[in-house]
């Protein structure tokens, strides 16, 4: 038996969420096999082979895996998972889209977003926006799991020397196809792995004002996050949303500016090591989770804070 990890990558580079997933996998079993499915994705497979702890890399290279379509990937995962006791993927939009489909094909439960492994069949995961943690036990022959990446360290990217084995690819189903994507381009660190995140909320009032966060983010080398209200209002793109159904972050420092702190937002950031809240409303719930709270209008705060960082 072995643990099968589904790698997330863009055919060239591995997404770092895979590294956290491999750490979780190594807590379950010494033998970790990683599936790299894509098109012309040998370089991604090679980088997986170099990760400490990876026992074997399965490479599935075919045109219908160029983009991660769940319809095409799920039968492949089922085909290569014959000896797997567990199938793991990061709880990213990639993993959340794919693994429940795999679980249903295998007629087993899926276990979403685990934060702790108690034993090979028992896991802890958040429910109700993280206001409760449930411990679940699975009797299924194969456990299909998405892993909350902030709850597990990243595996070292070097030190391994796994063999890369090419696997047979099931024929394309052709019921879905990729059309296009509009990916955010940014020189800033990635939101889910950044050491510092500065986030803005409804208080900013406009997309133009939201850009005031840029100079602080640049000074601190931080990623920019947002509350749902800010995204819904069109201040910033959806991929910056932090919260229950957006991204989960746990940086060393999280600075929430003009964010009231709805339950749904707190769910995405309350595991941050140090939380700073700046809000003109002294009663804002964000202050209940903040290590340092400052009651101040954000438009007065931003220039003063930027100056103080110089």
């Amino acid at each position: 038996m072995s643990v099968l990890v589904i790698a997330e990558h863009d055919n060239q580079r591995l997404k770092s969420a895979t590294l956290n997933t491999i750490t979780a996998a190594l807590q379950l079993d010494k033998i970790v096999v990683v599936l790299v499915a894509g098109r012309n994705c040998r370089s991604a497979a090679d980088s997986v082979a170099a990760i400490a702890g990876v026992g074997k890399v399965l490479l599935a290279d075919a045109a219908h895996y160029e983009h991660p379509l769940a319809e095409e990937l799920a039968p492949l995962v089922v085909a290569v998972a014959k000896d797997a006791s567990h199938i793991l993927a990061p709880a990213s939009t990639f993993g959340k889209n794919l693994l429940p489909r795999v679980a249903a094909l295998l007629d087993v439960a899926a276990i979403s977003d685990i934060t702790r492994i108690i034993s090979p069949d028992t896991f802890v995961r958040p429910i109700y926006a993280g206001n409760a943690m449930v411990t679940v036990q699975s009797p299924d022959p194969v456990k299909v799991i998405t892993v909350r990446t902030t709850a597990f360290d990243a595996a070292p990217t070097t030190g391994g020397g796994a063999a890369v084995e090419t696997v047979d690819c099931p024929a394309a189903l052709g019921i879905s196809s990729f059309v296009s994507h509009a990916l955010s381009k940014s020189e800033r660190p990635e939101l889910t792995t950044a050491k510092i995140v500065v986030s803005g909320g409804r208080g900013f009032g406009s997309a133009e004002n939201f850009k005031l966060l840029d100079s602080i983010a640049d000074k601190l080398g931080a990623a920019i996050g947002a509350s749902r209200a800010a995204v819904d209002a069109g201040f910033i793109d959806n991929d910056h949303q932090v919260g229950q159904t957006g991204k989960i972050v746990a940086p060393d420092l999280y600075i929430a500016i003009g964010i009231s702190g709805a339950i749904q937002h707190l769910a995405g950031m309350k595991e941050s090591k140090v939380i700073v809240a700046v809000n003109k409303d002294a009663e804002a719930p964000i202050f209940e989770v903040a290590d340092y709270g400052l009651v101040m209008d954000l438009f007065a705060f931003l220039p003063e804070f930027t100056a103080a960082l110089n």
């Binding site: 939009t93 879905s176 059309v179 990916l183 955010s184 991929d239």
Partner: peptide, 12 residues
């Protein structure tokens, strides 16, 4: 809505 932005797919 995906982690990196937006993706459009065509489904039968």
């Amino acid at each position: 809505e995906i982690d990196g932005g937006l993706e459009t797919v065509r489904l039968r």
